[in-house]
């Protein structure tokens, strides 16, 4: 592992550790810790929402709603699930909130698929080891399963939206996703 990779990995772990530490205080309703958690994570989560909902005003509302849920649901925090869990949990709450909004309003980003840069995700220069493992395993998949998994995760596209955009029968698309996730799981376990 190169020095840069080690530095990036350390920074990544340090960020996740800090998120875990702050979240453990937030679940005791510590307002100061919550504000620090917001300052540390809101730019990442806002960026994540904007990939799904390009409208900045709506994305800001989603961010507020997500943090409100994080405050109220922090007591479901489980440090025994591992250090990465706190950040993964916050990301999931935010993505779910954005997805709920999309499914409720039916509004979708109108960017054509060719503008979606999936190479940014499967770039060989990705830094931390988890990223490199995921990158390696995504690259082991056939192009179609890889594309639909990344598009669904990053942009929150539903089955039917992906089927429309890729002009593919929905059954085929579901099969790509199912097979792709299974192969991805096997590869990451190995």
């Amino acid at each position: 592992m190169s020095f840069d990779a080690i530095t990036s990995k350390t920074q990544d772990n340090s960020f996740k550790h800090e998120v875990e530490r702050l979240l453990s205080q937030v679940c005791l309703h510590n307002q100061t810790a919550f504000e620090k958690l917001y300052q540390a994570t809101s730019p990442k989560l806002y960026g994540l929402i904007l990939k799904m909902i390009p409208d900045r005003e709506i994305a800001a509302d989603i961010l507020q709603e997500s943090f409100s849920k994080i405050w109220h649901q922090a007591n479901s925090y489980r440090s025994d699930l591992g250090e990465n869990w706190a950040w993964a949990w916050m990301s999931q709450i935010t993505r779910n909130t954005a997805l709920d909004h999309i499914r409720r309003t039916g509004r979708r980003p109108e960017s054509p698929l060719e503008e979606t840069d999936i190479t940014a995700v499967t770039d060989d220069n990705l830094r931390a080891s988890e990223q490199r493992d995921l990158n390696y395993c995504l690259n082991q998949l056939k192009q179609e399963p890889r594309q639909v998994i990344v598009l669904a995760y990053v942009h929150g596209f539903s089955h039917s939206e992906l089927a429309d955009k890729l002009s593919t029968p929905i059954g085929t698309l579901k099969s790509w996703i199912k097979r792709g996730l299974k192969e991805l799981e096997l590869c990451l376990k190995n």
Binding site: P43, K44, Q64, W87, A88, Q131, L134, V154
Partner: peptide
């Protein structure tokens, strides 16, 4: 699964949210 897929998020750029959100 959150742990497996979460690294995809690292390719997403950070964006400073408007101050009014806080």
């Amino acid at each position: 699964w959150q742990n497996r897929l979460e690294p995809i998020n690292t390719s997403t750029e950070d964006v400073q949210p408007p101050k009014k959100v806080w």
